[in-house]
Simulated assay, not measured.
Amino acid sequence: MQFEQSEPRTAHWLERRSYTIHQSLDHLLAMAHRYRHEGQLRQAMEMYWMLLEDHSSTAQALEAQKSLLELADAYEREDERHTARAVYERLCDLDGVPSTRVVTARRAIPASST
């Protein structure tokens, strides 16, 4: 009988845990966006990478990937091709990350420009 009572508790605990993780990832993504907005790009990129690499199956990871591509595009426009290329290559190295746009952008940067 005690086993029957623990099942709903376990389900409830798992539901709460999932909610807590989701909320924490939302806050981490918001912090990364705030760093980016404040011009602290290194901190923003570190957080985006953490979200993308450590939590790859989440919506926050997809948003982080989008932000990293936007930052790489900005670096490329600012003639910081070596930084843009590093971001594109790291994105290509991730397993399970859609990389069509990354590969296309990477081809546009000549290897000799690093």
Results as ranks from 00 to 15, higher is better:
1 M>E: 11
2 Q>W: 07
2 Q>M: 13
3 F>Q: 13
7 E>R: 13
8 P>W: 00
8 P>A: 03
8 P>T: 05
11 A>P: 03
11 A>R: 07
12 H>D: 11
13 W>T: 15
13 W>H: 13
14 L>C: 08
14 L>H: 10
15 E>G: 08
15 E>F: 08
16 R>N: 12
16 R>S: 13
17 R>I: 08
18 S>H: 13
19 Y>I: 15
19 Y>V: 14
20 T>L: 12
21 I>N: 14
21 I>Q: 14
21 I>Y: 05
22 H>R: 12
23 Q>L: 14
24 S>E: 10
25 L>E: 12
26 D>K: 14
27 H>K: 15
27 H>A: 15
29 L>H: 11
30 A>K: 15
31 M>N: 14
31 M>H: 15
31 M>T: 14
32 A>E: 14
34 R>P: 10
35 Y>M: 14
35 Y>G: 10
37 H>K: 15
39 G>P: 04
40 Q>T: 13
40 Q>H: 08
42 R>C: 01
45 M>R: 09
46 E>M: 05
46 E>K: 09
47 M>I: 11
48 Y>F: 04
49 W>E: 08
49 W>T: 07
50 M>N: 12
51 L>I: 13
51 L>S: 10
52 L>S: 03
52 L>H: 02
57 S>W: 11
57 S>R: 15
57 S>T: 08
58 T>I: 11
59 A>H: 14
59 A>P: 08
60 Q>Y: 02
60 Q>V: 08
61 A>C: 02
61 A>H: 01
63 E>G: 07
64 A>T: 11
64 A>P: 04
64 A>S: 06
64 A>V: 07
66 K>M: 02
66 K>N: 04
66 K>D: 04
68 L>S: 02
69 L>T: 05
70 E>M: 01
70 E>K: 08
70 E>A: 04
70 E>W: 01
71 L>V: 05
72 A>M: 00
73 D>Q: 05
74 A>P: 03
75 Y>V: 00
75 Y>G: 04
76 E>A: 02
76 E>W: 00
77 R>Y: 06
78 E>V: 09
79 D>H: 04
79 D>R: 10
81 R>E: 02
82 H>Y: 06
82 H>Q: 06
82 H>I: 06
82 H>L: 04
82 H>D: 08
83 T>M: 01
85 R>P: 01
85 R>W: 02
86 A>V: 01
88 Y>V: 00
89 E>C: 03
89 E>D: 03
90 R>M: 00
92 C>F: 00
93 D>W: 01
95 D>F: 04
95 D>P: 06
96 G>F: 01
97 V>T: 05
99 S>Y: 00
100 T>I: 11
104 T>C: 08
105 A>D: 03
105 A>H: 06
106 R>K: 07
106 R>P: 09
109 I>A: 05
110 P>I: 06
110 P>T: 10
112 S>C: 09
112 S>T: 15
